[in-house]
Amino acid sequence: MTQWTQVCALTDIAPDTGVCALHNGEQVALFRLGGSDQVFAIGNYDPIGKANVLSRGIVGSIGDRYVVASPLYKQHFDLATGECLEDTEAAVKAYRARVEAGLVELAS
């Protein structure tokens, strides 16, 4: 059985932006797409730029993939899988996220 942990309110994330939250001792970048309740969560640490900055990246899409562009060197990370499109060895952890009663929750 999956255990879910509340990390913030959906309204804490402006549409098409990201925020950083602490989850089980790790920085996690949370992204809200459009005005919807769709939220993605990946590790906040950019393995190429070597800094916790992905939550400050630009959200967009490449083909049918939702991505965030790192604010440092502009690599794109897939919001669903954490894969780096330019360098598959630089992937970040992807977390299962959901919205329940206006609260963003991550699977533990």
Rank of each mutant, 00 (worst) to 15 (best):
H23G: 06
A97C: 10
Q27K: 10
A51Y: 10
R98V: 07
T88I: 07
L54F: 15
G57D: 05
G63F: 10
P15S: 09
P71V: 02
A97R: 05
P71L: 03
A41P: 00
G18V: 05
V59A: 13
G82S: 09
V53G: 10
Q75A: 12
A91D: 12
E83Q: 12
V67Y: 00
F77Q: 09
S55C: 12
R32N: 00
R32M: 00
D46S: 09
L85V: 04
I42K: 04
D87H: 02
T17D: 07
E100A: 07
A80Y: 01
G25Q: 06
Q38T: 15
G60I: 08
V39C: 03
G49W: 08
F31A: 09
F31K: 10
I48N: 07
C84K: 09
R65W: 01
Q38P: 00
H76L: 13
A21F: 04
A51K: 13
E83G: 02
P15I: 07
G82Y: 08
D87K: 02
H23F: 14
D46K: 11
K74T: 08
A97Y: 05
L22G: 05
S61Q: 13
L79V: 06
T88F: 00
S36A: 02
K74D: 04
E89R: 03
Y95R: 12
D78E: 13
S61V: 01
R96E: 06
A14I: 02
T88H: 03
L79I: 06
R56V: 08
I42S: 06
